[in-house]
Amino acid sequence: MDIAQFLVQVLNGVQYGFLLFLVASGLTLIFGIMGIINLAHGAFYMFGAYVAFWLTGVTGSLAAGILLGLPFIIAIGFLIERFAISFLYSRDHLYQVLLTYGLILIFNEMQKILWGTDFYSVPVPEVLSGSIPLTENQAYPVYRLFISLVCLGIAASLYLVIGRTRLGMMIRAGASNREMTQALGVDITKVFSVVFSLGAALAAFSGMIGAPVSAVYPGMGDHILIISFVVVVIGGIGSIKGAFIGAMLIGLADTFGKVLLPELASMTIYALMALVLLWRPQGLFGRPAT
Protein backbone atom coordinates (compact mmCIF):
# COMPACT_ATOMS: atom_id res chain seq x y z
CA MET A 1 0.00 0.00 0.00
CA ASP A 2 1.57 3.30 -1.05
CA ILE A 3 1.02 6.66 0.59
CA ALA A 4 -1.81 7.71 -1.73
CA GLN A 5 -3.69 4.44 -1.22
CA PHE A 6 -3.15 4.73 2.48
CA LEU A 7 -4.53 8.28 2.44
CA VAL A 8 -7.60 7.17 0.49
CA GLN A 9 -8.28 4.45 3.04
CA VAL A 10 -7.86 6.88 5.93
CA LEU A 11 -10.28 9.33 4.29
CA ASN A 12 -12.77 6.54 3.65
CA GLY A 13 -12.46 5.33 7.21
CA VAL A 14 -12.98 8.81 8.61
CA GLN A 15 -15.95 9.45 6.34
CA TYR A 16 -17.57 6.17 7.41
CA GLY A 17 -16.72 7.03 11.01
CA PHE A 18 -18.55 10.35 10.68
CA LEU A 19 -21.71 8.70 9.37
CA LEU A 20 -21.52 6.22 12.22
CA PHE A 21 -21.02 9.03 14.69
CA LEU A 22 -24.28 10.71 13.66
CA VAL A 23 -26.21 7.52 14.36
CA ALA A 24 -24.25 6.55 17.48
CA SER A 25 -24.39 9.98 19.10
CA GLY A 26 -28.19 9.86 19.13
CA LEU A 27 -28.15 6.32 20.45
CA THR A 28 -25.75 7.19 23.25
CA LEU A 29 -27.68 10.35 24.19
CA ILE A 30 -30.96 8.47 24.29
CA PHE A 31 -29.43 5.82 26.49
CA GLY A 32 -27.43 8.17 28.68
CA ILE A 33 -30.19 10.69 29.26
CA MET A 34 -33.40 8.75 28.93
CA GLY A 35 -32.09 5.35 30.01
CA ILE A 36 -33.64 3.75 26.93
CA ILE A 37 -32.04 1.05 24.81
CA ASN A 38 -33.50 1.99 21.46
CA LEU A 39 -33.18 -0.89 19.02
CA ALA A 40 -35.38 1.03 16.59
CA HIS A 41 -32.75 3.73 16.17
CA GLY A 42 -31.37 2.12 13.02
CA ALA A 43 -34.81 2.41 11.46
CA PHE A 44 -34.44 6.21 11.36
CA TYR A 45 -31.23 5.80 9.41
CA MET A 46 -32.96 3.43 7.01
CA PHE A 47 -35.99 5.70 6.60
CA GLY A 48 -33.63 8.62 6.03
CA ALA A 49 -32.01 6.78 3.16
CA TYR A 50 -35.32 5.67 1.61
CA VAL A 51 -36.92 9.08 1.99
CA ALA A 52 -33.86 10.67 0.41
CA PHE A 53 -34.13 8.20 -2.47
CA TRP A 54 -37.84 8.86 -2.89
CA LEU A 55 -37.74 12.67 -2.64
CA THR A 56 -34.61 12.99 -4.73
CA GLY A 57 -36.46 11.08 -7.39
CA VAL A 58 -39.45 13.43 -7.10
CA THR A 59 -37.60 16.74 -6.85
CA GLY A 60 -34.42 15.83 -8.70
CA SER A 61 -32.27 17.24 -5.93
CA LEU A 62 -30.76 15.53 -2.88
CA ALA A 63 -30.65 18.82 -0.97
CA ALA A 64 -34.36 19.35 -1.50
CA GLY A 65 -34.98 15.74 -0.53
CA ILE A 66 -33.14 16.23 2.74
CA LEU A 67 -34.85 19.51 3.54
CA LEU A 68 -38.31 18.10 2.85
CA GLY A 69 -37.71 14.68 4.39
CA LEU A 70 -36.05 15.62 7.64
CA PRO A 71 -39.04 17.32 9.32
CA PHE A 72 -41.15 14.33 8.36
CA ILE A 73 -38.83 11.90 10.15
CA ILE A 74 -38.43 14.17 13.16
CA ALA A 75 -42.21 14.13 13.47
CA ILE A 76 -42.22 10.31 13.40
CA GLY A 77 -39.55 10.25 16.10
CA PHE A 78 -41.54 12.66 18.22
CA LEU A 79 -44.70 10.58 17.94
CA ILE A 80 -42.91 7.33 18.78
CA GLU A 81 -41.41 8.84 21.90
CA ARG A 82 -44.79 10.16 22.96
CA PHE A 83 -46.91 7.12 22.26
CA ALA A 84 -44.63 4.16 22.89
CA ILE A 85 -41.27 4.88 24.50
CA SER A 86 -42.62 7.20 27.19
CA PHE A 87 -44.42 4.30 28.86
CA LEU A 88 -41.16 2.52 29.50
CA TYR A 89 -39.09 4.98 31.50
CA SER A 90 -39.65 3.21 34.79
CA ARG A 91 -39.50 -0.30 33.36
CA ASP A 92 -36.57 -2.67 33.14
CA HIS A 93 -34.25 -2.44 30.12
CA LEU A 94 -35.52 -5.79 28.94
CA TYR A 95 -38.93 -4.39 28.14
CA GLN A 96 -37.39 -1.52 26.24
CA VAL A 97 -35.36 -3.99 24.22
CA LEU A 98 -38.52 -5.96 23.52
CA LEU A 99 -40.73 -3.01 22.63
CA THR A 100 -38.16 -1.45 20.33
CA TYR A 101 -37.59 -4.90 18.80
CA GLY A 102 -41.30 -4.88 18.03
CA LEU A 103 -40.86 -1.46 16.43
CA ILE A 104 -38.08 -2.84 14.22
CA LEU A 105 -40.40 -5.58 12.97
CA ILE A 106 -43.00 -2.94 12.10
CA PHE A 107 -40.57 -0.51 10.47
CA ASN A 108 -38.83 -3.17 8.41
CA GLU A 109 -42.18 -4.43 7.19
CA MET A 110 -43.37 -0.91 6.36
CA GLN A 111 -40.21 -0.37 4.38
CA LYS A 112 -40.99 -3.54 2.41
CA ILE A 113 -44.57 -2.42 1.81
CA LEU A 114 -43.55 1.06 0.69
CA TRP A 115 -40.43 0.33 -1.32
CA GLY A 116 -40.15 -3.41 -1.81
CA THR A 117 -37.01 -5.48 -1.50
CA ASP A 118 -34.96 -3.99 -4.37
CA PHE A 119 -31.65 -2.23 -3.94
CA TYR A 120 -31.67 1.41 -4.98
CA SER A 121 -28.99 4.03 -5.48
CA VAL A 122 -29.15 7.77 -5.13
CA PRO A 123 -27.12 9.84 -7.62
CA VAL A 124 -24.35 12.06 -6.31
CA PRO A 125 -25.40 15.73 -6.71
CA GLU A 126 -24.05 17.25 -9.93
CA VAL A 127 -21.93 19.97 -8.31
CA LEU A 128 -20.21 17.49 -6.03
CA SER A 129 -19.66 14.71 -8.53
CA GLY A 130 -16.00 15.47 -9.34
CA SER A 131 -12.90 13.89 -7.89
CA ILE A 132 -9.64 15.27 -6.63
CA PRO A 133 -6.59 13.65 -8.26
CA LEU A 134 -4.07 12.36 -5.74
CA THR A 135 -1.60 10.62 -8.06
CA GLU A 136 -1.74 9.73 -11.74
CA ASN A 137 -4.22 6.96 -11.25
CA GLN A 138 -5.60 7.73 -7.79
CA ALA A 139 -8.41 10.18 -7.22
CA TYR A 140 -10.71 10.92 -4.32
CA PRO A 141 -14.38 11.74 -4.86
CA VAL A 142 -15.41 15.23 -3.77
CA TYR A 143 -18.73 14.00 -2.41
CA ARG A 144 -17.05 11.82 0.21
CA LEU A 145 -15.00 14.80 1.40
CA PHE A 146 -18.20 16.81 1.45
CA ILE A 147 -19.82 14.22 3.74
CA SER A 148 -16.90 14.39 6.14
CA LEU A 149 -16.98 18.20 6.20
CA VAL A 150 -20.73 18.42 6.79
CA CYS A 151 -20.57 15.84 9.53
CA LEU A 152 -17.63 17.60 11.11
CA GLY A 153 -19.77 20.74 11.16
CA ILE A 154 -22.62 18.84 12.80
CA ALA A 155 -20.31 17.26 15.36
CA ALA A 156 -18.90 20.68 16.21
CA SER A 157 -22.32 22.26 16.60
CA LEU A 158 -23.49 19.32 18.70
CA TYR A 159 -20.47 19.88 20.90
CA LEU A 160 -21.31 23.59 21.19
CA VAL A 161 -25.01 23.02 21.81
CA ILE A 162 -24.37 20.52 24.55
CA GLY A 163 -21.46 22.39 26.08
CA ARG A 164 -22.67 25.97 25.83
CA THR A 165 -26.43 26.35 25.60
CA ARG A 166 -29.22 26.16 28.12
CA LEU A 167 -30.73 23.16 26.35
CA GLY A 168 -27.34 21.46 26.47
CA MET A 169 -27.08 22.19 30.15
CA MET A 170 -30.44 20.54 30.76
CA ILE A 171 -29.36 17.55 28.71
CA ARG A 172 -26.14 17.19 30.67
CA ALA A 173 -27.95 17.66 33.96
CA GLY A 174 -30.57 15.12 32.92
CA ALA A 175 -27.86 12.60 32.12
CA SER A 176 -26.12 12.95 35.45
CA ASN A 177 -29.04 13.28 37.82
CA ARG A 178 -32.62 12.98 36.67
CA GLU A 179 -34.31 13.67 40.02
CA MET A 180 -32.17 16.71 40.70
CA THR A 181 -32.95 18.14 37.30
CA GLN A 182 -36.64 17.71 37.90
CA ALA A 183 -36.32 19.25 41.33
CA LEU A 184 -34.75 22.29 39.70
CA GLY A 185 -37.91 22.78 37.70
CA VAL A 186 -36.80 21.49 34.31
CA ASP A 187 -39.60 19.70 32.49
CA ILE A 188 -37.83 16.42 31.91
CA THR A 189 -40.50 15.10 29.55
CA LYS A 190 -39.75 17.97 27.17
CA VAL A 191 -36.03 17.28 27.39
CA PHE A 192 -36.73 13.64 26.56
CA SER A 193 -38.88 14.62 23.58
CA VAL A 194 -36.17 16.89 22.25
CA VAL A 195 -33.40 14.36 22.77
CA PHE A 196 -35.32 11.55 21.10
CA SER A 197 -36.32 13.71 18.11
CA LEU A 198 -32.79 15.05 17.82
CA GLY A 199 -31.44 11.50 17.83
CA ALA A 200 -33.92 10.52 15.12
CA ALA A 201 -32.92 13.56 13.07
CA LEU A 202 -29.20 12.81 13.31
CA ALA A 203 -29.68 9.17 12.32
CA ALA A 204 -31.99 10.08 9.45
CA PHE A 205 -29.60 12.75 8.19
CA SER A 206 -26.77 10.22 8.27
CA GLY A 207 -28.85 7.88 6.13
CA MET A 208 -29.76 10.71 3.73
CA ILE A 209 -26.36 12.20 3.15
CA GLY A 210 -24.76 8.75 3.04
CA ALA A 211 -27.29 7.38 0.54
CA PRO A 212 -25.25 8.27 -2.59
CA VAL A 213 -22.17 6.35 -1.36
CA SER A 214 -23.93 3.33 0.14
CA ALA A 215 -26.77 1.61 -1.60
CA VAL A 216 -30.31 1.92 -0.23
CA TYR A 217 -31.42 -1.59 0.74
CA PRO A 218 -33.66 -3.52 3.13
CA GLY A 219 -31.97 -4.34 6.41
CA MET A 220 -29.58 -1.41 6.21
CA GLY A 221 -31.06 -0.10 9.46
CA ASP A 222 -30.30 -3.32 11.34
CA HIS A 223 -26.77 -3.33 10.06
CA ILE A 224 -26.00 0.24 11.13
CA LEU A 225 -27.77 -0.30 14.45
CA ILE A 226 -25.53 -3.16 15.50
CA ILE A 227 -22.38 -1.31 14.47
CA SER A 228 -23.57 1.82 16.26
CA PHE A 229 -24.07 -0.20 19.42
CA VAL A 230 -20.52 -1.39 19.09
CA VAL A 231 -19.43 2.25 18.76
CA VAL A 232 -21.44 3.31 21.80
CA VAL A 233 -20.17 0.47 23.94
CA ILE A 234 -16.56 1.09 22.95
CA GLY A 235 -16.91 4.79 23.66
CA GLY A 236 -18.77 4.34 26.92
CA ILE A 237 -22.53 4.62 27.17
CA GLY A 238 -23.79 8.19 27.44
CA SER A 239 -20.58 9.83 26.30
CA ILE A 240 -20.69 11.93 23.11
CA LYS A 241 -16.91 12.18 23.11
CA GLY A 242 -16.73 8.41 23.47
CA ALA A 243 -19.16 7.97 20.57
CA PHE A 244 -16.93 10.17 18.41
CA ILE A 245 -13.71 8.34 19.24
CA GLY A 246 -15.49 4.98 18.99
CA ALA A 247 -16.97 5.87 15.59
CA MET A 248 -13.58 6.88 14.22
CA LEU A 249 -11.94 3.71 15.58
CA ILE A 250 -14.63 1.51 14.07
CA GLY A 251 -14.67 3.46 10.78
CA LEU A 252 -10.93 3.03 10.38
CA ALA A 253 -10.82 -0.55 11.68
CA ASP A 254 -13.59 -1.59 9.32
CA THR A 255 -12.06 0.15 6.30
CA PHE A 256 -8.55 -1.14 6.90
CA GLY A 257 -9.86 -4.54 7.92
CA LYS A 258 -11.52 -4.90 4.51
CA VAL A 259 -8.24 -4.06 2.76
CA LEU A 260 -5.78 -5.92 4.95
CA LEU A 261 -7.77 -8.90 6.24
CA PRO A 262 -10.57 -9.40 3.73
CA GLU A 263 -11.21 -12.91 5.08
CA LEU A 264 -11.94 -11.64 8.56
CA ALA A 265 -13.07 -8.08 7.77
CA SER A 266 -16.51 -8.23 9.33
CA MET A 267 -15.16 -9.79 12.48
CA THR A 268 -12.49 -7.17 13.16
CA ILE A 269 -14.79 -4.56 14.69
CA TYR A 270 -16.39 -7.06 17.03
CA ALA A 271 -13.00 -8.33 18.09
CA LEU A 272 -11.96 -4.72 18.71
CA MET A 273 -14.99 -4.22 20.92
CA ALA A 274 -14.32 -7.36 22.91
CA LEU A 275 -10.73 -6.21 23.48
CA VAL A 276 -11.78 -2.73 24.61
CA LEU A 277 -14.32 -4.17 27.02
CA LEU A 278 -11.76 -6.52 28.48
CA TRP A 279 -9.46 -3.61 29.12
CA ARG A 280 -12.14 -1.18 30.28
CA PRO A 281 -15.48 -2.90 31.00
CA GLN A 282 -17.27 0.47 31.02
CA GLY A 283 -15.90 1.58 27.64
CA LEU A 284 -13.30 4.26 26.91
CA PHE A 285 -15.17 7.23 28.36
CA GLY A 286 -17.91 5.56 30.36
CA ARG A 287 -18.38 5.96 34.06
CA PRO A 288 -17.43 2.81 35.93
CA ALA A 289 -20.37 0.70 37.01
CA THR A 290 -21.07 0.93 40.70
Binding site: F31, I37, H93, V97, I226, F229, V230, V233, I237, E263, L264, A265, S266, M267, Y270, A271, M273, A274, L277, L278, P281, Q282, G283, A289
Partner: peptide
Protein backbone atom coordinates in the same frame (compact mmCIF):
# COMPACT_ATOMS: atom_id res chain seq x y z
CA UNK B 1 -19.16 -12.36 32.77
CA UNK B 2 -16.69 -9.64 33.67
CA UNK B 3 -19.20 -7.10 32.41
CA UNK B 4 -22.77 -6.56 33.48
CA UNK B 5 -26.00 -4.88 32.44
CA UNK B 6 -26.08 -3.41 28.96
CA UNK B 7 -22.40 -4.13 28.47
CA UNK B 8 -23.13 -7.82 28.94
CA UNK B 9 -25.97 -7.57 26.42
CA UNK B 10 -23.63 -5.94 23.93
CA UNK B 11 -20.58 -8.16 24.39
CA UNK B 12 -22.63 -11.31 23.96
CA UNK B 13 -24.13 -9.76 20.83
CA UNK B 14 -20.63 -8.94 19.60
CA UNK B 15 -19.44 -12.52 19.99
CA UNK B 16 -22.51 -13.85 18.24
CA UNK B 17 -21.93 -11.43 15.37
CA UNK B 18 -18.33 -12.60 15.14
CA UNK B 19 -19.54 -16.17 14.84
CA UNK B 20 -22.18 -15.07 12.31
CA UNK B 21 -19.65 -13.37 10.04
CA UNK B 22 -17.19 -16.22 10.47
CA UNK B 23 -19.68 -18.60 8.87
CA UNK B 24 -20.88 -16.03 6.31
CA UNK B 25 -17.38 -15.39 5.05
CA UNK B 26 -16.02 -18.92 4.94
Amino acid sequence: VRTSGIYFIMITLAFAQMAFFFFVEH
